[in-house]
């Protein structure tokens, strides 16, 4: 199919460009592992709260980390696009008949591959630290993470194409990241928070994804939170993809 071929071409090209700077990829890959290693001693020393025991911690923490990995790395994707926009790299696409959707997906695919590698690495390190593995659940979970990644990348691309300024993209990513992190239950144990904050957290779409991810990690496939998480995340991803593609069309018009 034409679209798939175009996506593949764009993907291979952007992968080649990225591989010119292998250090960047390596450091990026190690980032979530660093987070995990820094967190681990913390979790060990956590007092037994109402929420979970220290032994449970790694099992609660890893799925959440996997979900947050996507915004932490992918929300900044658009910055690369701003640079390409200014260097005129994207201008060259203007004259080609390549589908704009293929451009978005092809570029996103490169970031998603890096994200997947990060996720696998994270799970592997967590496993050495005592994570209970449910293989099928984790495989599906990694798929869910990629959908979150696509959502974040598309949003970031849309910001980049509309604002055309790397500082603006970075600023927005920062502002989005902070409440996402604070309200995802990853940093602040939500159990400590009153109803008010728990309701606020319910508006954080990633909270559902985190729940679905936790269910997947324990292999509770019959749990409806999985379906809910998937549906919501996918709907948002499709919507943001549409937004990014439209922004692309405008930027290259």
């Amino acid at each position: 199919m034409k679209l798939l071929r175009e996506i593949w071409i764009i993907f291979i090209h952007s992968l080649r460009v990225a591989l010119r700077n292998p250090m960047t990829i390596i450091v990026g890959l190690l980032q979530p592992v660093t987070w995990l290693l820094l967190f681990a001693p913390l979790l060990k020393n956590l007092p037994a709260t109402a929420a979970f025991s220290p032994e449970e911690a790694i099992n609660i923490f890893t799925p959440g980390m996997l979900v947050m990995l996507a915004p932490i790395t992918s929300l900044f994707s658009g910055i690369g696009l701003v640079v390409e926009l200014r260097n005129g790299v994207l201008d060259r696409l203007r004259v080609t008949p390549v589908s704009r959707l293929a451009v978005v997906l092809g570029k996103a695919l490169r970031d998603l591959v890096v994200l997947l590698l990060q996720g696998v690495l994270l799970v592997a390190v967590a496993w050495t630290m005592g994570l209970r593995i449910h293989l099928a659940g984790i495989l599906v979970g990694l798929g869910l993470m990629m959908i979150v990644g696509l959502l974040m990348i598309s949003c970031s691309y849309a910001f980049a194409l509309i604002l055309r300024n790397e500082n603006a993209v970075a600023s927005i990513a920062n502002v989005l990241l902070l409440p996402l992190l604070l309200l995802s239950g990853l940093i602040l144990p939500l159990e400590l928070a009153p109803r008010w904050m728990q309701i606020a957290a319910d508006f954080n779409p990633l909270a559902y994804t985190v729940e679905a991810m936790r269910a997947l990690f324990t292999g509770r496939f019959d749990d409806t939170v999985i379906l809910n998480g998937f549906l919501l995340t996918t709907a948002l991803a499709v919507f943001s993809l549409f937004w990014a593609t439209r922004s692309f069309r405008r930027a290259l018009a």
């Binding site: 990026g28 980032q31 690369g80 640079v83 990241l177």
Partner: peptide, 18 residues
């Protein structure tokens, strides 16, 4: 790469969680 720079600097918040 400006993107890597932005992404990596966020690591400063981690020790604070300690």
């Amino acid at each position: 790469d400006p993107r890597t720079a932005q992404q990596l600097t966020k690591i400063v918040v981690v020790p604070l969680l300690l």
